[in-house]
Design a protein around this nucleic acid. Structure first.
Length: 282
DNA sequence: TGGTATGTTCCAAA
DNA sequence: TTTTGGAACATACC
């Protein structure tokens, strides 16, 4: 279930643990999670050294070198319930273990995933992954004009577009709702009708919410992603029925593109521009 | 029992 | 042609 901030935190932690280490063997128990297939991935990883760990959207990317170079990158997507744990010798095997990497010199990285939606993919080049994914919200390329280009190209509804990873990579259900609330925009607003002011406000809200979440170590509701404090800063997600921080109107819940959606019905009205955006939050 | 869940993909319908 | 709705993937929890 992690979104960009949680994946960023996990990536930073992994970097300190596995960069420079060589994989002795890789095992997986649920075939469908491994692409192109277990045999190919095992052969590629055996003896490979991890040269770097990076994040692209919600993907964790292990860059491979050493014995097998130019076999590609190993990209991991946690989807709804995936977790990556460094095995601590004391503990017993965690629940829902689906795959693991064992390193020369000891130590194992465990991939656990109750729902088996997660993916471990060997991808020929980083370019290939870039082709599948859109703008990185925390990179300099995430500009008002780039957003305007995306928004004006189609007549889609705002929230579904923000969740489309091929256009913007990394936003999920929580941070989309939070960003829309802070920008005072309705999730069903048509993107081709947004003013430059609205787009500017939305861009700021997205960047703000994601940065704040990373600073807070992410959002955690359960063991899937533990340790974060961002849930304390959420304004609408999980706040159904509670008063809006700005106007005291009760936060409402409804469905947008099959996703649970929370808004303040008074602050987020379709067709109404956010008023001269005087610090939209707090 | 039924509905919901921090996600993505595929296909049919509009 | 583009956009949306629904189902599917698979499991846990309330």
């Amino acid at each position: 279930m992690p979104e960009l901030p949680e994946v960023e935190i996990i990536t930073r932690d992994l970097r300190t643990r596995v960069v420079g280490r060589t994989i002795r063997r890789f095992r997986a128990s649920w075939k469908r999670q491994i692409k192109p297939n277990i045999t190919v991935v095992q052969r590629a990883l055996q003896g490979a050294t991890i040269t770097q760990v990076t994040r692209r959207g919600k993907w964790i990317v292990f860059h491979l070198g050493g014995r097998n170079r130019s076999i590609g990158v190993l990209a991991v997507h946690l989807r709804m319930s995936g977790r990556i744990l460094w095995e601590s010798a004391a503990d017993e095997e965690p629940e829902h273990l689906r795959a693991f990497w064992e390193f020369d010199g000891g130590g194992r990285l465990l991939f656990c995933d109750a729902r088996k939606f997660g993916r471990i993919e060997l991808i020929p080049t980083m370019n290939e992954l870039d082709r599948r994914l859109g703008l990185e919200p925390l990179e300099p390329t995430f500009t008002v004009s780039a957003l305007r280009a995306l928004f004006s190209k189609s007549a889609r509804k705002l929230k579904p577009l923000l969740l489309d990873q091929t256009l913007i990579a990394g936003l999920g259900n929580i941070y989309t709702d939070e960003a829309l609330f802070r920008a005072r925009l309705h999730p069903l607003e048509r993107t081709d009708r947004l003013s430059d002011t609205a787009i500017r406000s939305l861009r700021r809200a997205i960047v703000h919410v994601l940065r704040e979440a990373i600073q807070n170590n992410g959002t955690s509701f359960d063991e899937v992603y533990p340790g974060g404090r961002m849930q304390q800063s959420l304004r609408v997600y999980g706040h159904e029925g509670q008063p809006c921080r700005r106007c005291k109107t009760a936060i409402v819940y409804f469905r947008v593109a099959q996703r649970g959606t929370r808004i303040c019905p008074r602050c987020q009205v379709p067709g109404v521009e956010p008023t001269s955006s005087i610090s939209p939050q707090r």
